[in-house]
Design a protein around this nucleic acid. Structure first.
Length: 264
DNA sequence: ACCTAAACCTGGGCGC
DNA sequence: TGCGCCCAGGTTTAGG
């Protein structure tokens, strides 16, 4: 479910709720698949009494930085949520020193909760919205890559945080076919794609994420970017620019949407 | 490097 | 109502 804009929305929601609160207790319900490298008891022991200093995001990861330097790391997988009030899919409960709690909820249990004594070293590509992700750098990254462009954009080691919705949207905005070889882009196309990626991700954040099925913010509310999608989940609908039918194909086992007329 | 398929899971929607 | 199938914002692993 959640890509960079959804995770960032959640980060912004939850940080003021947890900042400078200590974790008083941790509860787990059928959370075995979700707790990575640590049991429920171990997690509670590791976190108990620790004050949350800030919440950061790196790619699709949330990093709860504790005053001790330890970190609570959460990846939301496909259906993970961070909530200020529980729903029926809660897997881990975090009780705070002010009497409030926040919750990790996950229907499909592809999400992961883990603990690290130090700030985690995540094997991720650049942050697409950071200043150091420049068109020149993007060009270098793409150079010599013979594989499929869309599949590469989804590779978190290549670029962090971009997922299946925003990839299709960015390629549409840039007028580039998802079927292209990554290394075949002309510099003008690299610039267009760079700009498009930043635009769709920024707008995704602005509209608080895309809720096509399970995504909710920390208050349990949907985002609104689903109303602004141009191609994702729009198969058969007319292209906004040329009226051609939006097509769905599969690339790397993932649904891919594009306009066969506007994208080449 | 690059590609494919399968696996990890649950739930919702749809056709019959 | 119910069953069976297909689909899903992600990632990893195995094998070619």
């Amino acid at each position: 479910m959640p890509e960079l804009p959804e995770v960032e929305t959640i980060r912004r929601d939850i940080e003021p709720f947890v900042r400078n609160r200590a974790i008083k207790a941790v509860g787990a319900i059928r959370a075995k698949n979700v707790l990575k490298g640590i049991g429920a008891k171990g997690l509670e022991k590791a976190l108990k009494g620790q004050r949350i200093e800030r919440v950061e995001r790196r790619g699709k990861f949330l990093i709860f930085k504790l005053a001790s330097g330890n970190c609570l790391i959460i990846h939301l997988g496909m259906t993970g949520r961070i909530l200020k009030a529980p729903d029926r899919f809660v897997k881990v409960t975090f009780n705070l020193s002010n009497g409030k709690s926040f919750y990790f909820s996950d229907i499909r249990m592809f999400g992961k909760v883990s603990f690290s004594k130090t700030y985690p070293v995540l094997k991720l590509g650049p942050e697409p919205l950071a200043d150091d992700f420049t068109p020149a750098r993007f060009k270098e990254m793409l150079k010599g890559r013979g594989g499929n462009l869309k599949a590469l954009l989804l590779d978190q080691k290549f670029l962090a945080g971009v997922g299946n919705i925003y990839t299709s949207e960015a390629l549409y905005l840039a007028g580039i076919s998802p079927k292209r070889r990554a290394g075949s882009l002309k510099f003008a196309e690299v610039i267009k794609l760079h700009k498009a990626l930043r635009k769709v991700l920024s707008e995704g954040i602005k509209y608080r994420g895309t809720s096509v099925s399970d995504y909710q913010d920390a208050s349990g509310r949907p985002g609104s970017y689903q109303h602004r999608l141009k191609v994702y989940d729009q198969a058969g609908r007319p292209c906004k620019k040329c009226k051609a039918k939006i097509r769905r194909i599969v690339i790397g086992q993932r649904s891919t949407f594009f306009c066969p007329h506007c994208q080449s």
